[in-house]
């Protein structure tokens, strides 16, 4: 069966104003709203649309992380994924570890496409898709804003600094999503009920043969430097005068 694997990560919701812990050991996550990484919702939405068009038969979502992540897998099932895979892992999961675990799932599931987010909005690493594509020795098309499947290949429009770039990649391939690829659907209450019955399989990194290797020690977290509070000007004339005085105009 033609299958799409979607990687999702549980992150602090994008609306939350995060705070750094006073001792610099991390950011406050207790009692903070957690969600599916927004780019991963877009990845899932795209996979669902491909399935709904009949170009794929099954959408499998996967996450690597602690037990809490199952909440986000359930949300993904409620959105419409057919199955979920939870690779249980604690501690810091670096992109290389996540990609190694995803590669094991790829070998098992043999997907036509793997769709990930372009970056997780907590660590802002933006690496996992490319690392997975490298380990798998398959094409990558990052920052996708349009995806068309054409038999054995895909045509992907990418948002790059210069504008829009189009690539053709042979399948299977790894795609990472940009914000304008689609607008994820809202989940309806009956779907949440249905999702409870969908299969969610739990695996361990050890069983997959992946060792957790943390290569970067997290030394210190700090709040960013604050900007000085500015002034209000009353009209355009005062603004232009102030900017001229600072030598900016």
């Amino acid at each position: 069966m033609k299958r799409i694997l979607v990687g999702i990560k549980r992150v602090v919701d994008y609306n939350v104003r995060i705070r750094v812990k006073p001792d610099g050991s991390g950011v406050v996550t207790d009692g903070v709203k957690m969600s599916i990484n927004p780019f991963d919702e877009i990845a899932l939405e795209e996979a669902l649309r491909i399935r709904e068009r009949g170009a794929a038969g099954e959408v499998v979502v996967a996450t690597v992380g602690p037990a809490d992540c199952q909440q986000q897998l359930r949300s993904a099932l409620a959105m419409g994924a057919d199955r979920a895979l939870h690779v249980e892992a604690g501690g810091v999961i670096e992109p290389l570890t996540a990609a190694r675990a995803l590669l094991k799932l790829v070998e098992r599931e043999q997907p036509l496409l793997v769709i990930l987010g372009k970056q997780a909005i907590d660590d802002d690493n933006g690496q996992t898709g490319q690392v997975l594509a490298a380990l798998w020795n398959r094409p990558q098309a990052t920052y996708a804003s349009k995806l068309e499947l054409t038999g054995d290949s895909a045509r992907v429009t990418r948002e790059v600094d210069a504008g829009l770039e189009t690539l053709e990649v042979d399948l299977p391939a790894v795609i990472t999503t940009d914000l304008r690829l689609n607008e994820p659907r809202y989940v309806k209450l009956p779907d949440i009920m249905k999702a409870k019955k969908k299969p969610l399989e739990t695996l361990t990194l050890a069983a997959l043969g992946v060792e957790v290797r943390q290569q970067l020690k997290l030394v210190r977290f700090e709040p960013p430097p604050q900007r000085q509070k500015g002034i209000r000007v009353k009209d355009a004339a005062e603004l232009v005068a102030a900017l001229k005085q600072k030598g900016l105009l």
Partner: peptide
């Protein structure tokens, strides 16, 4: 081996150290 980088959309700065 030690670098500073923004995380959480720049709302925190993280210092990391490679072996």
């Amino acid at each position: 081996t030690r670098f500073r980088r923004p995380i959480y959309a720049g709302n925190a700065i993280l210092t990391v150290e490679a072996a």
